[in-house]
Amino acid sequence: MTSLEIKGAVAAVTTSVLILVATFTAGGIYRNYLERETEPGNKPLDAATLAAKGRTFFFQSCAHCHGQDADGGEDAPSLLKLQISGAHMALVIQSGIKDEMPSFAKKYNEQDTVAIVAYLKTLH
């Protein structure tokens, strides 16, 4: 390899590492910021209260298709032992699944969605 190529490789690795570090740092800062924002009055509900609130929403909107015990219905899968992150669950609740599940973005705001996710996590 020529000296120009080696210089290029050093510049490439340095830039790539810096951009990845900056990306992960920015992502972490953004996540922390959102977590602080979603705490009502900066005073987070305890996990049990949050899950109880989520359970109420679950029975209002989810149990009809996913079953009272969240173990699945005729047209909807079981929600027990979900292998996806809380952020992913929230995304599905907010956005829905095309032709399969409606979006609940208008019905449940971000804090309500967090409560539903908290309840779903207790189903493990």
Binding site: R31, S85, H88
Partner: peptide, 16 residues
């Protein structure tokens, strides 16, 4: 993508 996932940089399952 970062904005969409609310800063979740890893995750599990297909997301991971």
């Amino acid at each position: 993508g970062i904005a969409l996932t609310k800063g979740d940089m890893w995750g599990r399952g297909d997301f991971g």
